[in-house]
């Protein structure tokens, strides 16, 4: 037991490396704050377009969304960061991470918004259009507010997932929380930094997990 604590909860090591961890936390938070709005916007855009039911466009949209959902996001990241330089586009790590995460997550948000929009009765759009609102206006003022209420649970869940996924930026050496912990581990020679990072992730994300769980329970109950 003594050994266990000395390895996994070594206070001396912790004291040495915690500044590094907090820098990593900063990057993680910044990455999340930038990516979430972008991904949501992308998803909304695709979903609203889909709701116009333009014959030629919808199959393409479905293909686009499914392609984004079919790739592991890490693959997208590697493609963007290591692949694009081959055509002369050199993105810094942060931008590459944002692009990959936003594209991938945008696919999921698109599906969620689409399901929400389809749950809103057609009559709502018809009523709105019959009073002279344009297609975009009807979508944003009438359909979307109702759609969002239906899909609050998956929306929150997907946002939580997105924030957790920022940790993959480790793979391209972006100094976010997990990477900082791994780097710190190389100076402490014990896994205390990992324990600390896990703890920080947990404390940061747990309130959101509870919220998602509560929303999900409500959603099943109402069906």
């Amino acid at each position: 037991m003594q050994d266990f604590i000395a390895n996994f909860a070594n206070l001396e090591s912790l004291a040495r490396i915690y500044p590094l961890l907090f820098q990593g936390l900063e990057v993680t938070v910044l990455l999340s704050l930038v990516t979430v709005p972008l991904a949501v916007a992308l998803g909304l855009f695709v979903a609203v377009l889909y709701s116009f039911h333009l014959r030629f466009l919808n199959p393409l949209l479905i293909l686009w969304v499914d392609a984004l959902r079919a790739f592991p996001v890490l693959v997208l990241l590697v493609l963007v960061f290591y692949g694009l330089p081959f055509v002369g586009i050199n993105l810094p790590q942060f931008a590459a991470a944002v692009l990959a995460l936003a594209l991938n997550s945008g696919g999921y948000y698109g599906e969620i918004f689409r399901a929400g929009i389809e749950a809103v009765p057609r009559g709502q759009t018809e009523a709105a259009r019959s009073t002279g609102l344009s297609a975009w206006q009807a979508a944003f003022s009438v359909v979307l507010p109702q759609a969002v209420r239906y899909v609050l649970a998956p929306l929150a869940g997907n946002t939580l997932e997105l924030i957790k996924t920022t940790s993959i930026a480790t793979a391209v050496a972006l100094p976010e929380l997990l990477r900082s912990a791994r780097v710190a581990q190389e100076t402490t020679y014990n896994p205390t930094p990992l324990t600390a990072a896990a703890l920080i992730y947990f404390l940061l994300l747990w309130p959101l997990t509870r919220l998602v769980a509560r929303l999900e329970r409500k959603m099943v109950a109402s069906r």
């Binding site: 996994f8 957790k164 996924t165 920022t166 940790s167 993959i168 480790t170 997990l178 791994r182 581990q185 896994p191 990992l194 324990t195 990072a197 896990a198 992730y201 947990f202 994300l205 747990w206 959101l208 997990t209 998602v212 769980a213």
Partner: peptide, 17 residues
């Protein structure tokens, strides 16, 4: 715990910890 922690963190912890 396992709904909150990122998958990569769990994996890395398992492998290196």
């Amino acid at each position: 715990v396992f709904r909150t922690l990122p998958q990569l963190v769990v994996m890395v912890f398992a492998y290196f910890g």
